[in-house]
Design a protein around this nucleic acid. Structure first.
Lengths: 251, 251
DNA sequence: TTCTTTCGTGCAATATCGTGCATAATCAAG
DNA sequence: CTTGATTATGCACGATATTGCACGAAAGAA
């Protein structure tokens, strides 16, 4: 990767996300943090951004309000996203669900990765657009507006013709007794279908999902191959899941 | 291989990929890196590209001005978009293809309208998300990243099962003699297919498209039912089209 | 406070660059 | 066809740029 290209990417990220973190950039670009820091220092010297401890902020202060709010919502999930992204290997076909956590996974995929991403979420497709090594396959169908994913017979049929290596599933509730649940019948059906077509099913469960139960069953706990939770996951929940034979992956 | 030919190839690669790397070029062309570097130096001396350590970038400035360009481009198209949006009646099925003009149409649809929008562009789907009365149907397939629309066999099949009342088609070139053209073979095929499935085909042509010709034919002028152009459309172009029996709709 | 993370600088290893020069290819005129 | 001139190409080598690591300083968090 060319230096100027990298700097342009940093500025672009800064524009779209409102801030950049040195460590994240070094992971994503597969470079040492020293190099990233050098870039940030040089960009700051040119007045193109404002250096802060840990990363950088836009040079102008005008736009900082909205992006920050949005960023905090997402940043809680970046730890889970990074662990998930690291599970994807070159050449694999990965299915990404809808939802903010899955978008975070999409953004966390290393730039040097070559893989195929299948998704029924337009948001995911857009998030992956400028990833050079990812081929994007979009599943068509009627858009379920509440979650912004495609559902219905057309989506089911589209999924039926795809086999993925790994599926990152987002759900509304993860409960030791009730299993995995979500808030819409159609989404539940889609998720079941995707899971059947995938060699591995990994659940992404940010803290507010733990112990929660929603209206519609998705699949039972013994059908998933892993659940990624935040590091500070409640001990009580962790033990309850362990007693069900489900081991959690802590981010 | 001739030197000039090689330089042309380098510039072409630079245009399509946004960058060139000296080592990659030397491997691809089976020449020493020295020769490539010489070429790059000479092209840089002519101002045709920007030399950087490791390769070269386009002569035009950084990517930072791209978002702004994109934004202004959209705002210029609102006049066309409003006229198009006003053509949609309650209960109709409308096909919107990719491109900034189509996004503008999506945004311009009256809030009280109830209709179904079919699209192969994730951008359009997202733009329509908070429109209460629009049912969104997304056509799946492989994402063609340059335009951010789905293409390929899957998309073609998805389109084959839908009949729309009206199709708003975006193109790269509208020419009195050459007809409608676009820059990618796959997109051209998709557009043809959509047009066949739609009762009416309306072309959205912002000023920079008028008189332009791109690489791939889409459909001939007598297959379209209307072309929406900006109000200040050149008289000369308007007359040339009229002599072909095509009447323009001025926004 | 103490501890952890991040920063900045110096330094060594590697990659890339530019120049000079020798060889090979191309071409025009005889 | 041959010859000489011009150009293109590859190689060598010193110069410069980039990167990662080490270590002490500084900033934040507990």
């Amino acid at each position: 990767m060319l230096t100027l290209e990298r700097k342009a990417l940093i500025l672009e990220t800064l524009n779209s996300e409102g801030r950049v973190v040195a460590k994240d950039l070094s992971q994503k670009l597969d470079l040492s943090e020293d190099t990233i820091r050098r870039d940030l220092r040089e960009l700051a010297a040119e007045g193109l951004l404002q250096r802060v401890h840990g990363g950088a902020l836009p040079a102008s202060k005008a736009l900082t309000d909205l992006p920050t709010r949005r960023k905090t919502a997402v940043s809680d999930k970046t730890a889970i996203a990074k662990v998930a992204a690291a599970m994807v290997k070159n050449g694999q076909i990965v299915f990404l669900d809808g939802g903010t956590t899955a978008v975070a996974v999409a953004r966390a995929l290393p730039l040097e990765l070559n893989a195929t991403a299948v998704t029924h979420s337009p948001d995911i497709a857009v998030a992956l657009l400028d990833h050079p090594g990812i081929e994007i396959e979009l599943v068509g169908g009627r858009i379920y507006k509440h979650s912004n994913v495609t559902v219905g017979a057309v989506a089911m049929e589209g999924i039926a013709h795809i086999r993925a290596d790994i599926y990152f599933m987002g759900v509304t509730g993860v409960h030791p007794e009730q299993g995995l649940t979500t808030g819409s019948r159609e989404e539940a059906a889609i998720k079941r279908s995707i899971s059947r077509q995938s060699a591995e099913t990994i659940v992404l469960a940010s803290h507010e999902k733990l112990g929660a139960v929603s209206a519609y069953d998705v699949i039972s706990l013994d059908q998933v191959d892993g659940i990624i939770v935040e590091r500070n996951c409640a001990r009580e929940f962790s033990d309850a899941m362990a007693s069900k034979g489900v081991s959690l992956i802590k981010a």
